[in-house]
Design a protein around this nucleic acid. Structure first.
Lengths: 353, 353
DNA sequence: AAATAAAATGAAAACGTATTCTGGAAAACA
DNA sequence: TGTTTTCCAGAATACGTTTTCATTTTATTT
């Protein structure tokens, strides 16, 4: 039936332990017997049982990857590099999708612990999450990326989201916009929280009043955003630009505006965040803040593997923040109205290039 | 350190076997001892070691999922439903990404066998692949989806790709197009192969001559397609419509046309295949052939789990083909030229709805 | 109350591997 | 040649469960 070490031992005329030794490249084994064993392995087509090995080695050679939504390009692109890089170290990844529900995250982690994965990578924690922190304190190899909890006592690799927002707001302000609406996702995620904070700080740095009605953080569906925009654009005080916390949201905004008969960037400017693939499509051409997803994923895995190899957790948690970058395309225009009526400043460059 | 069944046994004052029995809901255990054991489990926070269990049960509770490119929406969307559905049965999935390279597929399978996954789901086989067929013949639970090899001796769930092409071609022909270019991906994949065959058959059914220069199956990158189009549109005999074997390819085509200053659908019609998320975007609005990815994924998993539970493979491999559907949006127009100069037929409806 | 049947428990083996430790053979040294 | 060291190989144990089978306990019958 299934060929095991025992079979190899028998046909090679040695003991199980020597077979194991040649399989694991022990030095202490004569060349002649090594040959015998290898020949038997070849003949019988033996392949070591990794679960048995896991049991005795106390290492499974697997890691868990928990994402918010694998169908979301951000998560799938990061997953891709993690899987590819892990494979280079002979490590397999068990993937879990929380569908943005934090209860599922906790369940996924528990399940993976039972499966004895060697470490866990999570890009889907809530700000108020304490579960991961507790787990890490117990010495379990764990690194978060993309999102992090409010607690600082766990490893994470994230984008400097606040800075990203500042980049976006500055760009808009430079082109004359002073009434900027912020379209956010759920603020319980650190990404959105910091993008929101960055937006708020940036406009205040420019002495722009913060208008509560200008920020949206409700249900991120198209319909919901469409409703919000309709209501907003009926008021006296309209924004001239929309800063969306996500390219996906930005595209919703653009769609809604288009359906209302507005032109982007002539009537309104739109800027996104993430630089997903579609955004560079000539029909979309979204100006956005980009993050280096691949580097983030690579770093997260790298740190996790190091943690696993170390065998013990460092005193100080690892915190890495990556730099955002502004990608200028075609959805942001000059707010002439602003230049005309309020504070026209000649030194500001109006070119988009 | 780690709490095991032995610890539970000790603190509950029973034997390992009884602990195992209450954990696995054996009938033959007195209520009072069940209580004792459960209490100890609770107190010590015991959680069963799944790798140890796997070893003895000869079942890991994991399946392997091998995809061509997890960053591609088709694969990530199917992966999402597979992961979610598998979880409902307490099964975890190990994900592998072949990056469209078939050698990697074979390696991934071998690795998963060593990991003793209970079954494997593959959406990334070549037409000439025999490895999976051989494996299945050996009795290993295996189901392919999306793509299938030329051999029929293995289970697969696929779309009726030929029919999908016919749907697309018929639609174009009904609107007066007779010069239809087919933009394909690599024909070594059954999906593209059958879409190509469907295209060829469909135009022949309409007595349209097959023109070799009208089909492209080279490198599916934007640049390569752009080059092809430039050359093609310099010739005398130009197509009036493009049928792309993939929405991704259709979007490349539209981008290239847009950059050359053409309007879709006024100058050229474009139709895609797959109905990925972006295609419904108002800026894209691609007419396309859709497939029910979720159902495909669900069916594939369902069949695999059934196979695993059966314990032995059925005499006849399972073959399921799903129905494609035409989604009419805004990228296909009427070819008036055709109606005007050649065979204007009054009975053909020109409305797009 | 004794005999029997049924129910509950435990001892032991198994799953397939890695590793420690011991003993013997060979080599190196005297 | 005798002794010490080095090198190899194997026996035994461990990893943490499940499961079979024998045994003890409890319940049922006469």
């Amino acid at each position: 039936m299934k060929v095991t070490v025992k079979d190899i031992a028998r046909t090679a005329g040695v003991s199980q332990s020597t077979v194991s030794k040649v399989l694991n490249n022990y030095a202490q084994v004569k060349e002649s017997t090594r040959k015998k064993v290898l020949k038997a392995v070849e003949e019988l087509g033996f392949v070591p049982d990794l679960v048995a090995r896991s049991l005795v080695m106390n290492r499974t050679g697997t890691i868990g990857l928990i994402v918010g939504d694998i169908a979301n390009p951000f998560f799938s692109e990061t997953a891709k590099v993690i899987i590819a890089e892990a494979r280079k170290s002979g490590i397999d990844v068990i993937l879990s999708d929380t569908d943005y529900r934090s209860e599922l995250m906790e369940m996924a982690v528990k399940n993976m612990l039972a499966r004895r994965v060697d470490g866990i990578l999570i890009s889907a924690v809530d700000r108020k999450d304490t579960f991961t922190t507790d787990l890490y304190k117990k010495g379990y190899p764990l690194v978060l990326f993309n999102r992090h909890p409010d607690s600082d006592l766990v490893n994470y690799i994230v984008l400097d989201n606040g800075k990203g927002s500042r980049l976006a707001v500055n760009h808009l302000v430079q082109l004359g916009h002073r009434r900027i609406s912020f379209i956010s996702g759920p603020l319980q995620f650190s990404t959105f929280h910091h993008r929101y904070l960055g937006y708020k700080n940036a406009i205040q740095e420019h002495n722009i009043p913060y208008i509560e009605e200008f920020v949206f953080d409700g249900d991120p569906s198209y319909e919901s955003i469409n409703d919000y925009l309709k209501e907003l654009l009926n008021k006296d005080e309209k924004p001239t630009a929309f800063f969306a916390a996500t390219d996906q949201l930005a595209i919703h905004v653009m769609d809604a505006l288009a359906r209302m008969g507005f032109n982007v960037p002539l009537d309104f400017s739109v800027i996104g965040f993430d630089n997903i693939d579609i955004s560079s499509n000539p029909h979309i051409n979204l100006t956005t803040v980009s993050q280096n997803k691949k580097e983030m994923a690579k770093l997260a895995l790298e740190k996790l593997l190091a943690l696993i190899d170390e065998g013990e957790i460092p005193e100080q948690p690892i915190h890495i923040t990556l730099e955002p970058k502004l990608i200028i395309r075609k959805t942001v225009g000059v707010n002439y109205e602003q230049f005309h009526y309020e504070t026209p400043r000649g030194e500001i460059s109006l070119s988009e290039g």
